[in-house]
Design a protein around this nucleic acid. Structure first.
Lengths: 138, 138
DNA sequence: CAGTATCCGACACGATACTG
DNA sequence: CAGTATCGTGTCGGATACTG
């Protein structure tokens, strides 16, 4: 494994460098600010919420309209659907395209970044599937 | 890419199969139950919470005691620290070893599954670092 | 050292009704 | 079709004090 100028493993720095640097590399405790500064934090927070990953998976298939998404996901209120889409858009994962009407039409689609995230999440999903109910070794 | 018996891409099934199967593969909407049944959901929920990943990173370095962890992470209440560790233990990522005292001593360490998760999360962290502030296309 | 007990605020999410 | 407004609820997380 390669190392940085300070001898810290480069691999570790990706998630740890900003998330855990202080404590992992030095003796200083990790603060909430350290965590906030880590690029991984936003991503983890996003994929950790209830419906974002589902929406990303749906949009990975093909672009969809608002009501189409609403129908595609039961148990998801319009309020939350709207907010989730807005957040995904703000973070660059989803592109919203409005075509003035009538007939009025809005389309949601993944951006390149969104597709990239989808691939990354799928990797994690495969890990989860592989270890589901499997290893219970101490 | 290989396909399942129904023509669904195997890769997609890992995260999508249980998370989005219904809507992605058929026309039926995704329900909260579909989501709950997906093996990825628990993992996403775990790494999505505020401190679990930080704890995993710290324990990936070396096993630590309770107060040691408490000191290593500022802005983390003992109440939450305890609950996070209990959850990580219940899900098989962390092993708790108590040595009766005095002097009393409890040690927390990653299990094999925990180390595996740490590696998976680090991959995601590298993805996040690579795309941080980068692509604003689309 | 390794926790528990109690209280409280912030936020995510759900239900329902209404709008351009 | 594509949203917003309002309200209520549950869970997460923080502060503080106490215990074996």
């Amino acid at each position: 494994m390669s190392t940085g100028t300070d001898g810290t493993p480069d691999g570790a720095r990706a998630v740890a460098a900003a998330l855990v640097t202080a404590a992992a590399v030095t003796a200083a405790p990790v603060t909430a600010q350290d965590r906030a500064r880590c690029p991984a934090t936003a991503v983890l927070h996003r994929i950790g919420d209830r419906w974002s990953v589902v929406l990303i998976c749906l949009l990975a298939e093909r672009p969809r309209g608002y009501n189409e998404l609403d129908r595609a996901v039961a148990d998801l209120s319009r309020r939350v659907l709207t907010r989730s889409l807005r957040t995904l858009e703000a973070e660059g994962y989803v592109r919203r395209t409005a075509r003035p009407g009538p007939p009025y039409r809005v389309e949601y689609a993944l951006t390149g970044l969104g597709e990239s995230l989808h691939a990354a999440v799928r990797e994690l999903g495969e890990w989860a599937a592989a270890h589901d109910g499997g290893p219970r070794e101490g």
